[in-house]
């Protein structure tokens, strides 16, 4: 009995859980877009900025986004550790990439610590690697919070309704949504079945653990073929069951759980707008705020 908890739903009765899935999806998209509004060190320097200015703007912008994330997590009553767990999947990859970036940094740099051939350890490089890591971690946590607070049904329903305009140009939105929903439903079942088949083949001395990548891939055939065959049978059975329960596509289909925007969504909208504005303020130096803070910081340091 495996517990598949990759961004799996965490049941709780919080404000975020009660928000309309459509709003949440749009907010997550806005959140991701915001993350990419923050420029890289290289981009900023080439645009004529000073390193100090970048540090301030980036720190402030990320800071605002982190504040937003913390607020969202607090309202969601999901344990912080659960959200942080989502980083686990990409942790190794991000850290390795960050280290590579720091060691082999190729962008504009004025504070070089050590250079030898292509190895180029600079302050800019360190900052660049760090911001990349922070950006990616935040990038993973946002959607993770989404799936933790929104059931798969709500998600696919929400997506289906958001993408509704596409159905007007003959894209089968409903069919895609129901395919996703059934796929989600079947994931634990398929994993369980794969385990059973694996055990059955192990009982016949199949070896899944030794050998190089190719050998191991080939060893999976006795598991994948039966799984595929049974999946086709399953699909057949499921189709019969759905037809028997009067399924005829989207025609005339209603929903038990109705989606209605409410005051919570408005609160979310306000928060996201504030965050967005704050980020832009520091990135584009609206009202010269970033400039003022930078100068003050320099005056303190120098």
């Amino acid at each position: 009995m495996r517990d598949v908890s990759m961004g799996q739903y965490y049941p709780a009765k919080s404000g975020v859980h009660k928000m309309d899935a459509r709003a949440k999806i749009i907010f997550v998209i806005a959140y991701i877009v915001m993350l990419f509004f923050i420029p890289t060190v290289d981009g900023y320097l080439r645009g004529g900025g000073r390193l100090g200015g970048y540090i301030v703007s980036a720190a402030a912008a990320f800071g605002i986004i982190i504040l937003f994330l913390i607020t969202a997590i607090a309202f969601s009553r999901v344990p912080v550790l659960k959200v942080l767990k989502s980083i686990k999947a990409v942790l190794a990859l991000v850290l390795i990439t960050a280290v590579i970036m720091i060691v082999f940094y190729g962008g504009e740099a004025n504070h070089v610590y050590w250079s030898y051939g292509i190895i180029n350890i600079t302050l800019e490089g360190i900052i660049s690697g760090s911001t990349m890591a922070i950006r990616l971690f935040l990038l993973v946590m946002g959607p993770s919070l989404l799936t933790l607070t929104t059931t798969p049904v709500e998600l696919t329903d929400g997506l289906e309704r958001l993408l509704f305009p596409l159905s007007l140009i003959k894209i089968p939105v409903h069919e895609i949504a129901i395919i996703m929903s059934i796929a989600l439903r079947l994931i634990p079942t398929l994993i369980e079945e794969a385990d059973k088949i694996k055990n059955a083949q192990k009982a016949r001395c199949a070896d899944f653990d030794s050998g190089n990548v190719f050998k191991r891939a080939k060893a999976m055939i006795p598991v994948l073929v039966p799984l595929l065959v049974s999946s086709f049978r399953r699909a057949d059975d499921l189709a019969y069951a759905m037809d028997s329960r009067c399924y005829r596509g989207a025609k005339g289909r209603t929903r038990m759980k109705v989606m209605k925007l409410g005051w919570r969504d408005l609160v979310g909208l306000v928060l996201i707008c504030i965050t967005f504005f704050g980020v832009l303020m520091f990135v584009y130096d609206y009202f010269g705020v970033a400039g003022i803070v930078t100068n003050w910081a320099y005056s303190v340091i120098a």
């Binding site: 059973k196 088949i197 059955a200 192990k202 009982a203 001395c205 055939i221 006795p222």
Partner: peptide, 16 residues
Amino acid sequence: RGKVGMVFQYPEYQLF
């Protein structure tokens, strides 16, 4: 495993 043979439920599902 050569000495202890094991047949699981619905073993026909493992044919490949």
